[in-house]
Write a protein that binds this DNA or RNA. Structure first.
Lengths: 357, 357
DNA sequence: ACCGTTAAGTTAAACGTTTAACTTTCTGAT
DNA sequence: ATCAGAAAGTTAAACGTTTAACTTAACGGT
């Protein structure tokens, strides 16, 4: 069975191909009766316009490109699949699809983007977790291609993004720990130079300030984004003399929190009961750790929808309204046992509850 | 700057557009000197053929479709991102890209596939984790579109797939547990009706048989693919009278293993030291659990490469050689503390070692 | 020197749509 | 009844490639 084209539909409905096109895109008035006939013919034949022909004509690929940096081994990207899924959905609702391409090695990174744009493969690009100065952004800004980033970089660079407000989130975490009676709160932060790391740290400082405490340098330890360093960082911070040793740890990522909890066990301390722990990301499994991890959940689906919205606006050739161009969303604190002094509840018993205010 | 097209290159090089095309696709002999000139012009102008025009002409989209079923909440798809990444790479090396589309609700699932094919959006389709009879397979078989599945269904259905041999894997796990001195091994299996579940169970039976033991019905508990049920299943199995209670548990997935380990803690038993536990998947974080989880790792990158290979063959209009049409790969046993009787080593200390024979 | 054959280039016709520009038909105000 | 103007439909020209078919140049064997 040969592929059914617009001509077949036209013949079937007894009209010209232009009319078929007008009906199907409803881009012009057509007599209701004719329209009816065309639609009927199209559905009967199971016609769908060849997207390649349409792309050629309209100079649009109806494709959104999304690339993410390959995950270092053992560093799961807790939200990647969720994010792709949401973006795919959002795109689909607008007649678009998602082109997922792995970021190649830094060397030919730009080249791949160039090719993607210059061959008209994609109409717009979503930039995954950017949080540091990024050559891609500089490049994409110079050429004329719509793009939106998940995450901002430095304040000087001006481009459309959607981000999650780590500062507010961490501040919330600190407040929560304080309200649970943890009075000495330390933080495992990222190394300097990371935008979102700096933000989250700032949230910690906000929280401490609000508690009316002075900031203690010894309670701030910087580690990279993996569990191993979380372990070591926690070991370091918890080896302070007993009288100034923190009673709770805020971690800038769940992965770090996992390492930290391991360190606590190693020192004979029980996360939750003895030392409060909060993470960031709400990765899958966060609720299955022992104890289940209190953490900040990012509103991924919202992020995805907003990004696609912005992108569509740009693709239509319009400007994004100023108030929508750079959006900061708040994460949600998901309270689990790791930040409560109550004795350890086993996580998987069906009676367990979670609260996300 | 207007987009540079093949005409621009032709003019720049002083030849006709046909020659440019011939050079760039090297589909016909061209005098070396001319070819040189064309290539030089093309790179200088930064020319990349408009993929939409090319698609229209060649009736190929150079796109591979991949859809996966949306993840139930809290069920991470441990390998999804890895898989997408590997597939994207493999596709790219062959001049292809990956179209990631979320599987819609069952209702209009088929319809979406229809549209995808009928609008020539994709040249081929990769079917994600199929392990039960799947309407998509039936549909895709009837229409004429290349597709390859990751995972087989029932033996009657004949289509190209790549799978991971769960039977061999689980058997290996049983042997390993036995070699560590665990002599009473139970299994948390999936409900009946799942192809891969049945396979993994068979691997368990193989292992028990090899140990020279009879199979005990009480040691086989069926649960769904989540931690909660893993917890309950383990509670059930471990509540057997002390003299016939298993000393080790094989779990058909890491998620179930996580639940099981929680149950063991709940019962005052230490995973590893008291009761051996093995999972399946090597999800991210498997090595960060307490204790780190022994598990079976799927060779995702190989799977991806093979699938793309098969797909490309089909797209070229050729037959897949019989011996490559249905490929079963072996998983690798990754031994960590959860299956060793040694006292618990804390996982994150930098001295820790993993063995993957 | 001639001619057949091959190599190297060119021309022009697709590919399947969208849409501007044109023609025909209908409508209703005078 | 007439006619302007709108509505409905059609024709044909793009969109930017690939590639079959054709032209011209080059080559070598007799």
């Amino acid at each position: 069975m040969a592929k059914v084209g617009i001509r077949d539909v036209a013949k079937e409905a007894g009209v010209s191909i232009a009319t078929v096109s007008y009906v199907l895109n409803n881009s012009r008035n057509v007599r209701p009766q004719t329209r009816e006939r065309v639609i009927e013919a199209a559905t009967r034949l199971g016609y769908h316009a060849d997207v390649n022909a349409r792309s050629l004509q309209s100079r649009r690929s109806y494709l959104l490109g999304y690339s993410w940096r390959p995950l270092p081994v053992n560093v799961s990207s807790p939200i990647l699949d969720q994010f792709i899924h949401c973006m795919g959905m959002a795109a689909y609702q607008r007649g678009y699809h998602l082109l997922a391409f792995p970021t190649p090695s830094d060397k030919d990174e730009i080249q791949v983007y160039q090719e993607l744009v210059s061959s008209r493969r994609v109409d717009g690009i979503v930039l995954g977790a950017t949080n540091t100065i990024d050559p891609r952004i500089t490049y994409l800004s110079t050429i004329d291609i719509p793009f939106v980033a998940f995450g901002q970089t430095s304040p000087e660079e001006d481009f459309p993004w959607v981000d999650v407000d780590g500062r507010k989130g961490v501040r919330q975490a600190v407040e929560h720990l304080a309200s649970q009676g943890f009075d000495r709160i330390g933080i495992l932060a990222w190394p300097e130079g990371s935008r979102s790391g700096q933000e989250r740290l700032q949230g910690y400082l906000d929280g401490i300030y609000e508690m009316g405490q002075p900031v203690r340098e010894e309670w701030i330890v910087r580690v990279n984004h993996n569990a191993e360093e979380g372990f070591q960082g926690a070991m370091r911070i918890m080896s302070l003399p007993a009288d100034i040793r923190p009673t709770a740890l805020v971690c800038v990522s769940d992965l770090i929190a996992v390492g930290a909890m391991n360190a606590l066990y190693h020192l004979g301390l029980r996360p939750g009961q003895d030392v409060g722990v909060v993470g960031f990301d709400d990765m899958p499994l966060a609720d299955l750790l022992v104890p289940p991890l209190t953490t900040l959940r990012q509103p991924i689906d919202q992020v995805a929808t907003l990004i696609v919205d912005q992108l569509m606006t740009l693709i239509e050739g319009e400007e994004i309204p100023a108030e929508k161009r750079q959006i900061s969303l708040e994460p949600t604190l998901v309270v689990r046992a790791s930040s409560l002094k109550q004795p350890l509840q086993f996580p998987i018993s069906s009676t367990q509850k979670e609260t996300a205010p």
